[in-house]
Amino acid sequence: MSALLSIDRLRVELPGEKGTRTVIHDVSLDVGAGEAVALVGESGSGKSMTTRAVMRLLPEGARLSGEIRFDGVSIPGMDRRALRRWRATRVGMVFQDPRAHINPVRRIGDFLMEGVRLDRRLSAGQARERVSRLMRAVGVGDVDRRLSQYPHELSGGLLQRVMIAAALATEPDLLLADEPTTALDVTTQEEVVAIIDELRRERGLAMLFITHDLDLAAAVCDRIAVMYAGSIVEERPAGALTPDASHPYTRGLLAARPEIGRRESRLRTIEGRPISAFEVGDGCAFATRCPMVRDLCRRERPAPVHVTGGRVACHFAGEAEPQAVAGDGGAR
């Protein structure tokens, strides 16, 4: 199977105060046509940077190596015109903070019309018709009134629906969703992910879904890639991850999250704080926090190895954890 989006050994370096800093380290990931893949990780792990690299929206002075292909075409190799066309027609993007990405002084209708008319030779009437259809598809009632309103008159949840409508306006093949629900409360989050999920299935859209919530990722994606410090540490089918996580970091994340109906006297924590890619030494990025760390881990960076349905980058993948550290220890 050749993937729709294929990221191959992506590496991104950004200029910093003291020379360049690596923020993405050797990320490889495929998204097949119609497939939904989640990128899960804590703040600063490089999830957004990965999507920005795909969209060629990296900050000034960023250095990229490795290859990103869409339908076989190299994205870093595209010229300006091809890039603009590709962005306008083949991918849609939804951001965490819709308010920051919608021009506050333009009406919702104008914002959506712009997207719809970007590429296709639609008449004004056809375009308007399509905008209305999109708005209804994302669950907005009273379309006409909404279209004449300004972004500040809409709640966060409603605005995120408008963003989704805009992302779908040109009928793309791939949806990039960067924490589309992190700023929303749980009920609105459910609503918005349900809309994304439904429309994606209806239209056979591929999706790269970014979140820091493993359970949320499992609910809407086919595969999950867990990122830590600029690398993918584990990639598994969504169903396999929760019962059978192999990487100590994935296990830690799953255990740290309080769960309804499971009250423990203490939560299991991952000691320390998440580090950035440029802080990683020679060994395993997770070595500073790993309950299973051994000498080998500090010396050698683990290469991804295959496990059922996916891959894991850990020298001791799948081994049981030493009991002494289970249950406690992380808080201090």
Partner: peptide, 8 residues
Amino acid sequence: MSVLQLAA
């Protein structure tokens, strides 16, 4: 909101 966003 994620911590990185706040960091800005």
